[in-house]
Amino acid sequence: MSRTIKDRPPGLLVALAAIAIALFGLPLLGLVTRTPWTELGSILTSDVVIDALWLSVVTSIAAAALSLVFGLPLAWLLARVEFRGRDAVRALVTLPMVLPPVVGGTALLLALGRRGVVGEPINDATGFLLPFSIWGVILANTFVAMPFLVITVEGALRNLDPRFETAAATLGAGPLTVFNRITVPAILPALRAGTVIAWARSLGEFGATVTFAGNLQGRTQTLPLAVFVALESDRDTAVAISLLMVVISFVVLISLRDRWWSTR
């Protein structure tokens, strides 16, 4: 017996934790009990679901990748570089976490839409348009997902002892080499965790996507949007797609957890 029990855990803590678990577990139970098991196969192989699944996979991975590419430098800037207005920038970055996603989507539309402050000149010059396209979905997803990566990674950078980086620099390594060879390997677990959280947030994204990119099967309709419209008309399909999303998230999060997060 490697485990020893010194004290009984406080009953109050366990009780509150149990309520918390019930809060997350009961909806899942509700979903499972209402699942149309016999028709599950035919629902999940229908055109609507296959199209939405494909779009969700592509856009959520793209959004996670963009969050990593732009979010890591941003987190580094916030953690390592002193500049005026840093707190304001940090608040700006966390804005999508506080804003209702629908509001975020509206703001994106007003900025980058066809008649948006920035979107209109771009459209006039190049004919390129974000709304009602897969690019719009990816942008909306990145908008809501990237803050999760930035916050996770910035926290890790702050906890990282800067003397390692200083030591490497004194040994003659250039700033970019220090970043690539010292900083990134040291915060790798946080980087992985941040990317996975950004991906998960992106997979479930609804409000900003439907507001900014619209809803059309095969073009912009991701799984959450398909669930939402199915709720209006076809409860079985809505429940089946929800279950599919739960399974995808569970499989990915659990398998990554074993590989990435357990030992650290």
Partner: peptide, 20 residues
Amino acid sequence: SIDTEEPDVRALLTKVIEGE
């Protein structure tokens, strides 16, 4: 030839008002 099927009528109306 439709570009979006909005989940409710007011969301659709907003996109027309905004000129999107």
